[in-house]
Structure formats: structure tokens, C-alpha cells
Design a protein around this nucleic acid. Sequence first.
DNA 1: TAGATTGTTAATCGATTAACAATC
DNA 2: TAGATTGTTAATCGATTAACAATC
Lengths: 248, 248
Amino acid sequence: MNQIFQRMSKPKGNKTASTGNGPVPRATIGRLSLYLRQLESLDERGVETTSSNQMGAALGITDAQVRRDLTYFGQFGQPGIGYQIPELIMAIRQILGTDQPWSVALVGVGHLGRALLGYRGFVKRGFQINHIFDHDSQVIGQVINGLTVSSINDLSDTVSAHRIKLAAVAVPASAAQEVADLLVESGIEGILNFAPVTLLLPDHVKLVEVNLAVQLEQLSFLVINESAMVSCSSISQAPKQDALSSNS
Amino acid sequence: MNQIFQRMSKPKGNKTASTGNGPVPRATIGRLSLYLRQLESLDERGVETTSSNQMGAALGITDAQVRRDLTYFGQFGQPGIGYQIPELIMAIRQILGTDQPWSVALVGVGHLGRALLGYRGFVKRGFQINHIFDHDSQVIGQVINGLTVSSINDLSDTVSAHRIKLAAVAVPASAAQEVADLLVESGIEGILNFAPVTLLLPDHVKLVEVNLAVQLEQLSFLVINESAMVSCSSISQAPKQDALSSNS
DNA sequence: TAGATTGTTAATCGATTAACAATC
DNA sequence: TAGATTGTTAATCGATTAACAATC
């Protein structure tokens, strides 16, 4: 069991948690994000309590799945009552690591980069883009959303000086591996990659790929196969990787 | 068996295909996109033949998985030889429905919309954004990437007149459901949704959600759980839906 | 021929769900 | 109390993989 599991294992201090729970399915993490969004929406409307049944219904999954997903991390509900929404929101944020803000470096300030800069969903979830970099001397020095574009040459110093852990890579495919190498050298811990290339990274640097062409191909497949699945969220499913609680 | 399966079932005309193959796993479709990207890359370098072993190694999956994925749709290889790359590329394109171009309507021409407009990966994969719409009268009439921004009021007429099947929704969360309703009324068949809301759509309209906050939360989870999985592509995994070959 | 690699089966592995005692 | 709902187990379902005969 690693840090987060220990931290979350007895949130109510009333039971021994997750004995024999086994590894966390990958899909569970994606669903936790969706639970969180749903819970935040209920919270904004002033709802104070919910049930696994209600949460599942909103996302098209079973109540058993919701409860199972949560119990990988502890016990958050009250039998007969359900879940206290503010409490569960805090718990899920802690599990996902968004109970504290993350500073994110953005590399590549084209349209996609600017879209990410302007995306309020990031800030809302505790991700703050604090440093932006580009290769293009025409762009360097520009101020966008209150941030000055730095030269890619400064990336290494800035990332290591500020101990930035996360980066979003929004550069052309041809430059992505080079940028990734720079980030790795500078001590980055996780990369969100938008470039349509398979990045090669050391094991200790985590990677999430966002591949828009893949998403659109999923959609065209669904459309031409009328009988196929109804919808499809962006919960990630990796090419076979170790299960979540296995060792890296 | 539906259209595509019949079409693909005997690509080499030499065997009875996919008897008892069962439904196509959802993850298989996502991997087909990745195979395609890998194959195109090999093809560009002039490589003519590959093997399940080579393809799997490039994506970190087993050779058995690659072969299994392909045999849901037919027999594309030669024992002892492997796969002819150009032939397999064509076959996968046909499976995914990208052997013919798709016309895509884009709704919302903010930074994200512009990023999508400029994304060469779409065109390369046969997706062409031919119509763009926005709500903002300041933006309507502007020419972006050779396309004139139309009023959202014209969306319905344009989509139905041109029988456009796919749309990308890149509007704020608050407007997304309204836009989706408009698209559905106009006869759209598939929606790629970038707005962070759960869209409600009739069953016959397919949906793929791209949720950037979810992706970043996956990344932060991975980073704070050092022992977690190494990486994570954007192959979609839905909250439980029907399997691919089941009926809609 | 010997070596390589496919397509496919059966075995394994992992994730989801139904069911229910425990609890409020 | 009766009704609701949890946490958890065992059963089910689905996806991956090892192994191998068939084939080039």
C-alpha cells in the first residue's frame, strides 16, 4: 500500500479499510473524476446528501460500481443515509491529488495552448498554468492571460527552479519528443501530451496522452456501426500497464 | 453481425471469418487507431511489412493482443510473413470508417475551436471541418482557415442541407446542451463534446466526450501514487455501455 | 527444410454486478 | 420499527494472454 491508500484508508476512523481490496482498476480513477464533477454540481445546487444509486444513475452505471470504486480508498458513506456531499467531494479531491493546487507548465502557445490557458475547468479543478513556453521568437515576450511567454531555452531552469511537477505539451508532433526530453531532464513528474506521437519517457515520469484523432475515429466507428455502444466518455484505458497498486 | 463486420469479414476471400468471435471489446477500437498511426509511420519510412510482435512492442502490448484485435474484423496477415502495411492500413481505415472523408461541423470558434480548425491530424485522418458556427456577432463573418464563421442560427439549416453527420462542440459548458439539442434536431449522427458537461442525447446519436480536466486528474493521481501505472493513453473507456456488437 | 508468424483456442486474469448482512 | 442504503462477498461477465497447429 502506498501513501494515498494509507492516507485514505480510515477516513472515518471506524473500520479497518480495504483489506484484500486488491489493485485499483484503471477505469476507477476516471470515474472518480466524473463522480467529482457530478457531486460538485449537486453541491452548487445546495444538495447535501446523495446515494450510490443516484450518482450511478447520473452517469449510467450501477450503484454497486459506485460503491466499489469508493471502497478502494476507504469508507465514505453511512448505511441507510448515503454520502455527505461536501465530505465526499473533499475525499475524492484528496484521492485524485487535487485537494492542493498544482502548478502546470505549458509548452507550446499555439491555438491549442491558448485554449488550454483559457480553460476555466483547469483552475476550477486546482490546476494552474503558471509558466508558458514557446519556440517562436515572434511569440516569446507576449503576454497571454497575464502570463509572459518564455523562450523554450528557459524551460529547464524555470521548471527545476520552481520544482514544477506537471507539464502540458501542446507543440507540433515533430517537436514533442525533444520537448519531453527537456522536461524530463528538468525533473518533471507528469506530462499531458497533446501531440500525436508516442512519447518515450523514463518510467518515473507519468504520461497521459490526449489524442484527438483517436477520439474522432472512435466516433466515426460508432456512427457507421449503428449497433455499437451508445456513448463513450474520455475515461482512459491504457494499452496494458501495471494495475494501479502494483509497483512502478 | 452488422454492416461493417460483414464488409470486413472476408478481406482475403480465403477463409470463413470471425465465427464465434463475440462482441468487439471497446478498447479494441481505440487500439486500432493507434495501430493505424504506427502503420502510417512505418509506411512513410518505406517499410512494407510488419508483425504483430513489432506492432505490439511499439505500443507496449502483447503480440497476441494485436492479432486478437485484428481478427475481430477478419484475417489480414500471412502466417510466417506478417502483415502487408499498405493493405492493413486500408483495412483499418475501412473498419474505423475513415477510408472515406467525413465532413465535420464545428460549433464554437474560441481558442479551442481554432485549435481544432488548425489541427492537421484531423485532415490527415480524413476529417474535414467544412462548416463553423458561433454565437458571437463579433466573430460571425470572420474568415478562419478559409472558412467563414456562420451564425448559430444557420446551424440547423446547414447541417440538414449538407447532411453533415459529425459535429465538434467547443462551446462553454453553459451552452453545450442547447447546441447539442440543435444538432440532434438537424439530424447529426455523432458529437465530439469538449464541454465539461454530461450531454443528454437520444440513443441514435453517438457521443464521444473529451474531458481535459479528467485527463489532468488522472495525471495528478498517477504522480502522487508513484507506484501506479506508467502511462495512460486516451483510448476511451465508457461507463458501462453495451458491447460493440450488441444492438443499439 | 527450418524459421517465422499467423489465427484461434483454452486458460488466466481482471472488472463488474447481484445479493445480502450490517447499519442508520 | 420499517425503510433505506452502505460495505463487501461470491458469482458473473468480459478482456487478455499463453500456447500451438497451420501456414508461408
